[in-house]
Simulated assay, not measured.
Amino acid sequence: MFGRSQYPHYLRNEAGKRPTSAAELADGRWLATWPESLAIVSADGAREEYDWAEFEYGRWDEETSELSLALTRRGRGEPIVLVLADGSDPSVVTMVHERIERSIVHQLVWDLPSGRVARGQVRRRRNEELFTEILSVPAHTEADRASLAQLEVELREAVGLPLKKNS
């Protein structure tokens, strides 16, 4: 439909760069990607922009042309579901997948004393800074909290991040 040089002008990011990849969505908005971020952009210029590290995962359904993006932050609700317009280049999905995966540097699955399971990750921000993130339901026992603190230590040690003062 559109080549990279023919993307609508309003897709340029704050630095004025054209997207690396983009696809028109069924609702008329656009999904645009850059090495450091993803944006959902309307023709009027309204945009939702996300760092890759904000996504827990992306799922592509080729049959329905739906891309579901789950955010890691609690309280963000259901995944963002984007439907590519007919004729859109689905290669943008590859970029989304690769960039989310690149933001995950290291991860561990951790059994908690309560029987719950936590997943900890070391992630990469757009400026290449590393940070840790623990994805689990809130700990219900003191033993779970202590175990989650140990998970944080293990994650930091695995990639050479300094330990937090209270760890």
Score class of each variant (00 low, 15 high):
V92I: 15
L69W: 01
H97A: 14
L67M: 04
G75M: 09
H97S: 15
S37Q: 15
S91R: 08
I100R: 01
D86V: 08
V41S: 03
R74T: 06
Y50F: 14
L71V: 08
L82Q: 13
Y57P: 00
S42C: 05
V81L: 03
L69C: 06
I80S: 11
I40Y: 03
D44H: 12
Q107P: 01
L82G: 07
A43V: 11
L69M: 14
G75I: 11
T72L: 12
V83L: 12
D61Q: 11
G77S: 11
I80K: 12
Q107S: 13
S88K: 03
M95F: 08
E78T: 10
P79A: 15
W52A: 03
A43W: 01
E62D: 09
R47F: 06
H106D: 02
D44G: 08
E48K: 01
G75P: 05
Y57C: 03
E62R: 11
L82Y: 12
R59F: 05
T94L: 05
G75W: 05
V41H: 05
V81I: 08
S91C: 09
V81S: 10
L67P: 00
W52Y: 11
V83E: 15
D89W: 07
R102A: 14
L69R: 00
G75Q: 12
E49N: 02
L82H: 14
W60E: 00
Y50N: 10
S65P: 00
S42L: 06
G87Q: 14
E63T: 13
R76M: 11
E101Q: 14
H97E: 15
R59A: 09
E101H: 12
Y50G: 06
G77P: 01
A46H: 12
H97W: 01
S88T: 03
T64R: 12
D44I: 07
S68K: 02
L69V: 02
Q107R: 04
L84E: 07
D51E: 08
E49A: 14
R102N: 12
D44V: 09
V83S: 15
I100E: 03
A53T: 04
L69P: 04
V41E: 02
R99W: 08
